[in-house]
Design a binder for these strands. Structure first.
Length: 504
RNA sequence: GGCGCCGUAGCCAAGUGGUAAGGCAGAGGUCUGCAAAACCUCUAUUCGCGAGUUCGAUUCUCGCCGGCGCCUCCA
């Protein structure tokens, strides 16, 4: 394992050195399930997926936690407006999130803790912080974290070096709560009638209320680490750049003040934002794009993964139609090569040919790139290069050994950027047709998929016969007819032809 | 006001103190009856602009111009 990652905590590339040899604990901040997660959220999840996969491909055993935030202001507001409770309101969005996750081929985390299932650990954490003097109760009944009692506060975001402009973001009114210091953050929010109405209030020794957002991740992370016997410190904590401050800063303060450890996570990694056509996704701009939107537009998840991996995770990325189109074409090409490689003849094991260095080279390039702070664009470049070189070797009649194929499959399995719909091909041999005369075939395909394939194959055979008698006009007519119905014909050099369904 | 990021071919995007990966698009070619697919060749003497350090800078430093993010519950 030679993976180096950019650690936000030190602002340097650092080798990943797991606390327990061979094992990595990873916590990634998940979605707030108040709506459909958008493609920006998923860009972060996608880079985390690559990290997860690369750790596993490197032989590490990963314990991956992703939380679902199912109680917050927006959820309460929306549940309230619909006259329902927060659980019923969030449930469909949790399901939608898992659907989108699967569509984008994200490897499922080992646990998806929901905030409302971890109220007890949260209360214990707040109580512990109060007992240790890090937290106090305001006159409004809410409990706050006193940042001036935690000297390390600001280390992650370099807050000690910055001057805060109160309310600069315009997102929060500074005097909404009763705090000692304007920068103190809330751990436990005293219950309001609106909270009670939607089931967002719980009893606690310090008063009825609900958890603050930052508290959730600390409490769930620590509780799950303990349950798994993994100690009080995470190896990796990841999220989007916007979470550095205040979310992750606050998590560190709460967790470390509670455990007494120097770190909540040794390595903090953050992914950059995805913009859509030049601007940040926001309701105001009406440019929220979700995976389901893209799916409806016929975007292939493999192409989308390819597109996002063609830019480094710490670089801003603009999602555009041109980019999607380009990725779709690149993805198609990789898919063509992949199926060609799978179907090719094989060189016996132990016999070396030009495919042997091909495989070694691919492996070395991809591993080198991913080890270097997850340089996916470079890994993708190596994959394209291998696909071109591989096609050339196959053109020359040089075939891969099983080991070469396995290498390709394993490395592609890490990136997972092949198209979803490959379009199985049926081979038509001249003379081996069904014997059905072209005149007897229907010009339009049957609805049933299996019958449609038989129909296409029969037409292809008829075309082969026409070609055999040099009736090119008829052959071209049939090819056009099939194309119109969504079937593509490719003639091979040996006179055989392939028919395959084309997915638009 | 504070902290920070970015500006590389028509578009997207890696990268290095020693002279520019990869993808898409485009042009020509090989193969083919013609296509498709695949492959080959070509497409930035140049990395926003200016100055400095250096034998040498796209890569380091400073300034400028342009775009962007965070600054208390947004991935």
């Amino acid at each position: 394992m030679a993976l180096r990652l950019y650690n936000t905590l030190t602002r340097r590339l650092e080798p990943l050195e797991p606390i327990r040899s061979g094992q990595v604990s990873m916590y990634t901040c998940g979605p707030t399930i108040w709506n459909y997660a958008h493609i920006g959220n998923f860009r972060t999840f996608l880079f985390e997926d690559l990290l997860r996969r690369w750790l596993e491909a490197s032989g590490l055993s990963v314990f991956h936690i992703m939380n679902l935030t199912d109680v917050d202001d927006r959820i309460i507001r929306e549940a309230s407006a619909r006259g329902t409770d927060i659980r019923s309101f969030t449930e469909p969005f949790a399901r939608a999130f898992f659907e989108d996750r699967d569509w984008l081929r994200l490897r499922p985390a080992h646990v998806y803790p929901r905030a409302t299932d971890f109220i007890d650990p949260m209360i214990a954490l707040v109580q512990g912080l109060m007992d240790r003097g890090f937290a106090y109760q305001g006159e409004d009944g809410s409990v706050y974290f006193a940042i001036d009692r935690f000297p390390a506060y600001g280390r992650l975001s370099q807050l000690d070096r910055r001057e805060l402009k109160a309310g600069a973001s315009g997102r929060i009114s500074a005097d909404e709560y009763d705090k000692e210091n304007a920068q103190d953050f809330v751990l436990w929010k005293a219950a309001r009638p609106e909270d009670e109405a939607v089931g967002a209030a719980w009893d606690a020794p310090f008063g009825r209320g609900r958890p603050g957002w930052h508290l959730e991740c600390s409490a769930m992370g620590l509780a799950l680490l303990e349950r798994e016997g993994l100690g009080p410190v995470l190896d990796i904590h990841a999220g989007g750049v916007d979470l550095i401050f205040p979310h992750h800063e606050d998590e560190i303060a709460q967790s470390c003040a509670y455990t007494g450890e120097a770190h909540f996570a040794r390595m903090w990694v953050h992914g950059e934002f995805l913009n859509v056509r030049g601007s940040k996704m926001s309701k105001r701009f009406g440019n929220i794009t979700t995976p389901r939107d893209l799916r409806e537009d016929g975007v292939d998840p493999g192409a989308l993964r390819l597109l996002l991996f063609q830019t480094h995770y710490r670089q801003k990325l603009d999602l555009t139609d041109d980019g999607l189109a380009a990725a779709r074409e690149g993805c198609r090409r990789l898919g063509e090569f992949d199926s060609r490689l799978r179907r090719s003849e094989t060189t016996p094991a132990g016999e070396e040919n030009d495919f042997t260095p091909w495989g070694r080279n691919l492996e070395q390039k991809v591993a080198g790139a991913l080890d270097d702070d997850l340089n996916a664009p470079e890994a993708v470049a190596a994959v394209f290069q291998a696909s071109r070189d591989g096609n050339r070797l196959l053109d020359l009649g040089i075939f891969p050994a099983a080991a070469d194929r396995d290498r390709w499959a394993r490395l592609l399995g890490v990136l997972d950027i092949l198209p979803a719909e490959a379009g199985a091909a049926a081979i038509v041999t001249p003379g081996g047709g069904s014997g059905v005369a072209a005149g007897a075939l229907s010009p339009s395909p049957p609805a049933d998929p299996a019958e449609a394939e038989a129909w296409a194959v029969a037409w292809a055979a008829a075309r082969a016969a026409a070609k055999g008698s040099k009736d090119y006009k008829e052959a071209d007519r049939i090819r056009a007819l099939l194309a119109g119905a969504g079937w593509e014909i490719r003639d091979a050099r040996d006179g055989r032809a392939e028919v395959r369904r084309v997915f638009p």
